[in-house]
């Protein structure tokens, strides 16, 4: 095994680089947990442990995105937009936005709700302190596309060989 292996990065500062890529410990950890819940080997036959404290149900992520609330929020945002200002959003503001998912905390991404349920107030991105009361459904893997390096064009999904993804989501 290569000695260049590093510890899982979420707890470490980003290695080298220009500083344009963000690494923050709690959101990095959150991304790992997202993968643990949604990916990895599954054996259908055996009981899956369910998470207490949040609902894990599948929902079409597009439903979350394309809702009337979202449209109205966009309209409000574009209305407020000061076109005379040529300032682009500074890094601190953008960092805040990374895990919020939307300019307004009213429509947080679904996983944000799950994250709060799991981690409560310890999040770095408490932002303006608004809490999401309702439990959101987390979007599980909807259609995933996989591509192998060297293949041209986009894939139609599905991996090579006879493996099919086991789909126990209970």
């Amino acid at each position: 095994m290569a000695t260049a292996m590093q510890q899982r990065g979420s707890m470490q500062p980003y290695r080298g680089g220009s500083g344009y890529v963000a690494r923050s410990s709690s959101s990095g950890l959150y991304d790992v947990l997202e993968l643990i819940l949604d990916k990895g080997l599954v054996i259908d036959v055996f009981v899956r442990v369910s998470l207490i404290g949040i609902e894990i149900l599948t929902v079409d992520a597009r439903i979350v995105i394309a809702s009337v609330d979202t449209y109205l929020r966009f309209a409000e945002a574009v209305n407020r937009l000061d076109l005379m200002s040529t300032e682009t959003q500074g890094l601190p503001e953008m960092m805040e936005g990374i895990t919020e998912g939307g300019a307004s905390n009213k429509t947080k991404g679904v996983l944000q709700g799950a994250k709060e349920a799991l981690f409560g107030e310890e999040d770095e991105d408490s932002g303006d302190g608004e809490r999401q009361g309702e439990r959101r459904r987390s979007s599980s893997s909807t259609t995933r596309r996989r591509r192998k390096s060297g293949s041209s064009g986009s894939s139609g999904g599905g991996s090579s060989g006879s493996r099919s993804r086991s789909s126990s989501k209970s």
Partner: peptide
């Protein structure tokens, strides 16, 4: 200023393993 990137890793290959039914 346009896209902020977030990087998590290196990780075990959660997204690249699967078992047949």
């Amino acid at each position: 200023g346009r896209i902020q990137f977030k990087y998590t890793g290196p990780l075990p290959p959660h997204s690249f393993v699967e078992l047949a039914m």
